[in-house]
Simulated assay, not measured.
Amino acid sequence: MAQQHLRSILSFVNSPELASPEAYIHFTKGLMDIHGNVSVPATEEFLRDWLKAFHIFIAKVVGSQGIMP
């Protein structure tokens, strides 16, 4: 619910937001080891794909603002 509320605020102030893909990860015991490695291959692949999309989104936002990375 908090994420949806934050999105409505960001939209109101015309802030860029990554609307897709969405990532809702329900943490369960054994999902990650003590070193932060994801133990479920499908979840690891999903997170890698999401991070790639996030990286592209950030590059577009930074580029559109004329900010040097």
Score class of each variant (00 low, 15 high):
S20G: 06
E17T: 05
K52S: 06
V61Q: 01
L6E: 12
I9P: 00
L51E: 11
P41L: 00
H55D: 10
W50H: 04
S15T: 12
M32I: 05
W50C: 01
V38R: 15
A42W: 02
V38I: 15
L18Y: 02
I58P: 03
G36I: 03
E45H: 12
Q65F: 08
F12H: 09
L47W: 00
S20T: 03
N37E: 12
N14I: 11
S8K: 07
A23R: 07
S8M: 10
A53W: 03
M32K: 06
I56R: 12
A23C: 04
S64R: 08
K60F: 11
S20Q: 07
S11N: 12
E44F: 12
R7N: 15
G66V: 04
G30R: 09
I25N: 11
P16W: 01
Q65E: 03
K60C: 11
L18F: 03
N37S: 15
A2P: 00
A19W: 07
V40S: 10
R7P: 12
Q4A: 06
E45D: 06
V38Q: 13
Q65R: 14
P16G: 06
F54W: 15
V62F: 02
I67W: 05
Y24M: 14
M68E: 13
L10Y: 08
S8A: 08
H35V: 14
F27I: 14
P41S: 00
H26P: 13
N37Y: 07
I34R: 15
H35K: 14
F46H: 10
D33C: 05
A59S: 07
A23M: 04
A23V: 01
N14S: 07
A19V: 03
A42G: 13
I25D: 10
E45T: 11
L18V: 00
F12Y: 10
S64G: 06
M68G: 11
A2Q: 02
P69Q: 15
D33T: 06
P16N: 04
E22F: 08
L6S: 06
A59F: 04
I67Q: 03
H35F: 11
T43R: 10
I67T: 05
S15C: 10
V40Q: 12
P21Q: 01
I58F: 08
K60Q: 09
E22D: 05
G63A: 14
V40M: 10
N37C: 13
A2M: 03
P69I: 14
Q4T: 04
G30C: 05
K52Y: 03
P21E: 00
F46V: 04
H26M: 13
I9C: 00
S11R: 09
H35C: 15
L51N: 13
E17W: 05
K60M: 07
L18M: 04
V62T: 03
V40D: 05
S15Q: 08
E22H: 11
F54T: 07
P21D: 00
Y24Q: 14
K52R: 11
S20D: 05
F12E: 14
T28F: 08
H5S: 13
F57N: 01
P41N: 00
K52N: 09
A2S: 02
S64Y: 08
F54Y: 15
S11Y: 02
V40E: 08
I56M: 10
S8C: 10
V13S: 00
I67F: 04
A42C: 09
D49S: 11
A42M: 10
